[in-house]
Simulated assay, not measured.
Amino acid sequence: MTTSLILRDATEADLPAILAIYNHAVAETTAIWNEILVDLDNRKAWYDLRQARGFPILVAEVDGRIAGYASYGDWRPFDGFRQSVEHSVYVEKDHYGRGLGKALMSALIERARAGNIHVMVAAIEAGNTGSIALHKSLGFRLVGTHHEVGKKFGRWLDLTMMELKLD
């Protein structure tokens, strides 16, 4: 079976697939520290806000199906932080370990450089060694860990902070 990968900007038509990937991460993982599943209106509001702010949402399309997405947005909502962003990258569970996260992140980093972003921030659940390794492979450096700053599935979670200087 031939696998084709296309990285492109998301459209509103991609929102149901993005919703499914997001809700899986909420329900089954500690990648997102929310506990309540969201609906399509929630993802549409998120999409509209990203579009209004000029922030990219990229999707990975594999054999015509959305298999992952990545985006970035404001890191902190103050003028002095306008050239720093925090990103998110999520891959559909059936496509874990196939390089989609790295492909999406590489494209997102290039988009950030072109958009005059100075620093990209990653906030990763400390036990997610795969994501931490991915970020290290892309040049992110570890800047610290916040201990027990969140709770999900009945346990305290630590948050590893990483950053990539883009210029």
Rank of each mutant, 00 (worst) to 15 (best):
A45E: 12
L108I: 02
F78T: 10
I6L: 15
G139M: 08
R76M: 12
W75C: 00
V85A: 07
D79I: 09
R8P: 05
G101H: 00
L104Y: 02
N42K: 10
I124Q: 06
Q51N: 14
S4W: 14
D9A: 15
N116G: 08
E86K: 02
M105Q: 04
R65A: 15
P16K: 13
L19H: 07
W156T: 11
D63I: 13
L15S: 04
K102P: 08
D9S: 15
E92G: 13
G139E: 11
H87M: 01
D41R: 09
G139I: 09
A107Y: 02
R111N: 03
M1D: 15
P16L: 10
D48Y: 10
G73N: 01
F81H: 05
A10T: 05
N128H: 03
G101W: 02
A126M: 00
R155S: 09
L40I: 15
K151D: 09
W156Y: 12
A45Q: 05
M161Q: 09
S88Y: 07
V26N: 00
N116L: 00
L142Q: 12
A25L: 05
R111S: 05
F55V: 01
V89E: 03
T11F: 06
H147L: 12
A70L: 08
D9V: 12
L58W: 00
Q83M: 12
